[in-house]
Amino acid sequence: MTDGKLLVKDKDIVVPGEVLASGMGYLPGHGTYRDNDKIIANRLGLLTVDGKVLKTVPLAGRYMPKRNDVIIGKVIDILMSGWRLDTNSPYSAVLPLKDASFSYIAKGADLTRYFELDDYVVVKITSVTSQKLVDVTCKGPGLYKLKGGRIIQVNTHKVPRIIGKKGSMVSLIKKATDCKIIVGQNGITWVNGEPEMEVITVNAIKMIEEQSHISGLTDKVQAYLEKTTGKKIEIKIEE
């Protein structure tokens, strides 16, 4: 029992219950578990072989809060000492008073002066407990209350594709449409700009979401943006 044998290929789609490897040579990572000398997938995903560790990258499912994620939350309740935010996941988050603003908020102050119900706020997750109690902060660069614009929801697992390598995809759209775009890790996305441009931005994001598996997507999105905005986009290749 020294060698392990990989029974599927790297980057394969694996389904729950599928035996990925036999023998003790491999280690189970996220989305896999060990049953005696077998490693079995326990969720649908893309298999990644990282040295001796086997893990799966999820392709579907709801957003699960993770520490240090920047997300967009919606204020659903005002508490004694903070706000409750909907995070587009099974668990809501609490924004405590001390993490809400740089200025001092006195006890008993009117909290709606800072955040009103149904406001959208860009926040960062500071902690997630084992019981999935989520704490967030609004103190930090790029964390603030959103004013104007529109909110759309995208698949949380497609967020990296929408942002692109080093933000290449999202900056391409920003450049073409002059819209401000914030993509939360939870899939909630905020778009703000000229109304016509907002529509083009939303369509471009939907296009990325639907065709995320296609290679050469950046060129396709660029062609779409050039056609609809009537502008020529020059991308600088920064390395």
Binding site: V15, P16, G17, I40, R43, G45, L59, A60, R62
Partner: peptide, 11 residues
Amino acid sequence: LADAGITMKDM
């Protein structure tokens, strides 16, 4: 259930 990305031991 598997399509919804729920973690499960087998189908």
